[in-house]
């Protein structure tokens, strides 16, 4: 019951924010000097055709009416035709979005496992060489932009050592898996094509790692800080005095409590991944929605730009709601507090 209340409240907020975002996008799209109808048809189209299209696109109506038309279409998933690919923007999004989602989710997995792992290691061996190494590594990770990591990895592991492929999602000679989720690794597994899975995974590792480095470093720093803080608490000393094995103390009692800040910041990390994907996808020629978005931006393809921003906004908001749910599950205090305020 409590959960439903929480979810409906968050959903209401999300709808409000999305409405605002749609207005923002609409304003950005209409700020552009020039006639969208003229841009769509090209410089050589006769004037009467342009006028007809203006009428069809409701461009002669007042702004708020235009916004209403735009929004009704957008809600139904109709963002118009992309000026670049000359296809329905919705189809483009359907094709490119899973590739980005796969990349960002895999990066998130690396971030969570490696970040929390390194942080735990660092806290357990506080002020030893391992701790210092992790701290230096996390500093480097925080200050280096992801596209620099991407170029370094591409150069080192892709070109010099030649361990991993550096272009696209799949090699030419590997059979493509059937499209189920659109995420190559998962589709290949579902179809039982292990060779394809292995190839897709190899393509995925370098871009995902480049994307994960920054957030991984941040998570490691945060986990280390909260853990070494909590290590001095009485309840840990109590568990130790009771003879609970050290592994269980760290794994069960310490980790769960210390993860709360780490998980809460995961939403921000996800935002960073979504943004950084714009450059990483460009560098690794990853056919995702971010690369599609950049190309749309460079060519002022407004329909595509609006769709990309709106989709990424929805993704980001959804992830944040999930993160809040997980934090609630981890922290009994937050559960109780919101129960009281309900």
């Amino acid at each position: 019951m409590q959960l439903i209340g929480f979810l409906s409240r968050r959903a209401f907020q999300a709808i409000f924010v999305l409405l605002g975002l749609s207005i923002l996008i609409f304003v950005i799209a209409r700020v552009l000097p020039g006639d969208p109808a003229r841009t769509a048809l090209g410089a050589r189209a006769p004037q009467w055709v342009v006028d007809r299209l203006r009428e069809d696109m409701h461009l002669n109506d007042p702004m708020h009416v235009q916004y209403f038309y735009w929004l009704t279409d957008a809600v139904q998933g109709d963002f118009g035709i992309s000026l670049v690919t000359r296809r329905n923007v919705a189809d483009d999004v359907k094709e490119f979005f899973p590739a980005s989602l796969e990349l960002v989710l895999f990066a998130g997995l690396i971030t969570a496992v490696a970040g929390i792992g390194l942080g735990t290691l660092s806290a357990r061996h506080k002020d030893k060489w391992i701790d210092n190494a992790v701290r230096i590594f996390s500093y480097a990770g925080v200050v280096t932009p992801s596209f620099v990591f991407a170029i370094l990895f591409l150069l080192l592991f892709g070109l010099v050592l030649d361990w991993f492929p550096t272009i696209g999602r799949l090699s030419q000679d590997v059979p493509r898996p059937p499209t189920i989720t659109g995420m190559m690794t998962i589709d290949a597994l579902l179809a039982g094509q292990l060779a394809t899975f292995w190839d897709a995974l190899k393509h995925l590792i370098l871009p995902a790692l480049a994307l994960a480095m920054g957030s991984m470093a941040q998570e490691a720093r945060l986990t280390r800080a909260t853990m070494s803080d909590n290590l001095t608490k009485d309840y840990i000393a109590n568990k130790r005095a009771l003879g609970v094995p050290e592994r269980k103390v760290t794994g069960r009692f310490l980790l769960k409590v210390s993860l709360i800040p780490t998980v809460s910041i995961f939403g921000l990390d996800f935002a960073a991944s979504l943004s950084n994907a714009f450059l990483v996808e460009l560098i690794f020629v990853w056919p995702g929605i971010s690369r599609y978005g950049v190309n749309a931006m460079l060519r002022k393809d407004l329909n595509a730009i609006s769709a990309v921003i709106l989709i990424l906004g929805i993704t980001f908001i959804t992830v944040n709601i999930i993160v809040d749910l997980v934090v609630r599950g981890l922290d009994p205090r937050i559960r109780l507090r919101s129960a009281r305020s309900d």
């Binding site: 605002g20 975002l21 460079l298 730009i305 908001i317």
Partner: peptide
């Protein structure tokens, strides 16, 4: 209004604005 701006990662909106 602040929430709306924070709902999208800053780089993405900055890219969009710069592109226009």
């Amino acid at each position: 209004i602040t929430d709306i701006f924070l709902a999208v990662p800053p780089l993405i909106l900055a890219l969009a604005i710069a592109s226009v």
